[in-house]
Amino acid sequence: MSPLTPEDITRALERAAEGHGSAASELLPVVYEELRRLARSHMRRAAPEHTLQATALVHEAYLKLVRSAPEGWQGRAHFFAVAATAMRQVLANHAREAQAAKRGGSERLRVTLSGEIADERAGRDFDALSLHEALAKLAELDPQQYRVVELRTFTGLSVEEVAEVLSISTATVKREWRAARAWLAAELGEPGGDGAEPPAPRTEA
């Protein structure tokens, strides 16, 4: 894929802002390409021991994209709404590809040099697929709750930011989020909780 020009990005963001149905898929290559670019540059700089800070990277990508947003663009609310969906699609595709590669019996060394074991990898792909399936289910059952999850999970937005993007109260976001987490945990067969709300891990943007 050839590098995206600022014009490409601007055009995608404009289309997203105009509310095109295909906006998410327009934005997908933008998000994707930006992530790839960042990953490559990080890898080049990285010492062998360097661990990629995925969250930091994502936010770096968003910041970059947001900065590219054209003048007069309706604002970050729309952008995040679309970008979250794009991001989810990127990762869903990635999970499916990883799974397919496994089924295809590709000759990957599953026991890797870094001591990471194959089955962990397999388990992760499985988790990822289950997560995406669960999210698709949630999108049908409860669109608003789904949007909260999508924004919180795939963009790392704060409760307040999600409330702003979705034009709902922060209390509602908190409630939806709490219920959604319980629902997802149940769907994905996670062990039960103790009823206490753990701090949501997120990076300050």
Binding site: A179, A182, W183, A186, E190, P191, G192, D194
Partner: peptide, 12 residues
């Protein structure tokens, strides 16, 4: 849902 409230790992 109640059983999974505040699940220890935030799986998503």
């Amino acid at each position: 849902l109640l059983a999974h409230d505040g699940a220890p790992s935030v799986v998503a």
